[in-house]
Amino acid sequence: MNEEWFREELYPHWRQSFQITRELYRANDGLQDIVLFETPGFGRVLTLDGVIQVTTGDEFVYHEMLAHVPIYAHGAVKSACVVGGGDGGMLREILKHASVEQVVLVEIDAAVVEFCRQHMPTVSAGAFDDPRTEIVIADGLKYMAETTRRFDLIVIDSTDPIGPGGVLFTEQFYKDCARCLTAEGIVVNQNGVPFLQGEEVTDTYLRRRPHYADVGFYMAAVPTYVGGLMALGWASASSRPRGETVETIAARFQAAPVTTRYYTPEIHKAAFALPQYVQALIPRD
């Protein structure tokens, strides 16, 4: 029996493979190579330009931690913006909060949204059609530079800082995001796997520090993103949200609970305790 495998070659010295039980889609829309296939262990897997973006098996870890940590830390998020996130998973988690009145999704590639709506509907779970959702097909860099809107939460749900996603890791973009925050607003983003991509932590800290009152990182274990714990970037116009006690977070969770599979108030607080090798990547002020 011939087995077919997908091999992700994100790193020159380390590759991971997924057994393909069925290829569902393959195309190049002019912006990205899109491939969707099914695996025995991770469900449906979406890749862009040969790099794993999301799997239906473990996406809940990533989406829950980028959505619920800042929302419960802030305590009163009403407006949010997701840059990237065309699969709809981040929308799904943010919209679980009844207090959220509007979420703007800024996605550069309309084909990704339509593709995920059709082929991975469990990821968005109807979030694209929620009346609180506004979809803007635009370059996130340009949108943040030009918009006059202000948000309590900005989630940068981007690819790694290679290729088109690189602009979303620049100091100018982080400065524009800071301008678009409300008084205690928060920006979070995926920041790579520090064991293999340590420079991303250092670069993000240095580029954000001049523009925010509080800059830091927290961690989550996402099986698909190999190499140990994944870093999630944190930047806020206020130092208050990150310092909230676990008791305060738990009280907010109990008062306005959402259904989760990974996130808990205890995980929320513990996620900010960084391993020593990650702490060493953060420059001393």
Rank of each mutant, 00 (worst) to 15 (best):
E4V: 14
E4T: 13
F6C: 03
R7D: 11
L10I: 09
Y11V: 07
R15K: 12
R15Q: 15
S17C: 13
E23D: 03
Y25T: 10
D29C: 09
D33A: 12
I34T: 02
V35Q: 15
L36M: 10
L36V: 14
P40S: 08
G41V: 06
G43S: 07
R44M: 07
R44Y: 05
V45Y: 03
L46T: 01
V51Y: 10
V51E: 05
Q53R: 15
V54S: 09
V54A: 02
F60L: 14
V61G: 08
V61N: 04
E64H: 08
A67V: 08
A67F: 06
H68W: 12
I71R: 00
Y72S: 05
A73D: 02
V77W: 04
V77L: 08
S79D: 06
D87I: 12
M90R: 02
M90P: 01
R92I: 00
K96V: 03
S99M: 09
S99Q: 15
E101K: 15
V106D: 02
V106L: 03
E107M: 08
H119K: 14
P121V: 10
P121L: 10
V123Y: 03
S124A: 15
S124C: 12
V136I: 15
L141G: 07
K142P: 03
M144F: 14
M144G: 07
T147Q: 04
T147C: 10
R149V: 11
I156N: 09
D157K: 04
D160P: 06
P161D: 00
G163M: 13
G163R: 09
G165I: 04
V167E: 14
L168D: 01
L168M: 14
E171D: 14
Q172P: 09
K175A: 14
D176A: 11
T182D: 05
E184Y: 09
I186D: 02
V188W: 01
Q190W: 06
Q190D: 04
P194M: 06
Q197Y: 01
G198E: 01
E199N: 12
E200N: 07
V201E: 03
V201K: 00
D203Y: 11
Y205Q: 05
H211G: 05
Y212S: 01
Y212M: 02
Y212G: 00
D214K: 03
Y218S: 02
V222F: 03
T224P: 00
V226H: 15
A231V: 00
W234Q: 04
S239I: 05
S239H: 11
P241Y: 03
E247M: 13
I249R: 00
A250F: 05
A251V: 06
Q254H: 11
A255P: 05
A256T: 14
T264A: 07
I267W: 12
K269H: 13
A271N: 10
A273F: 13
P275R: 12
P275W: 06
Q279Y: 05
P283H: 06
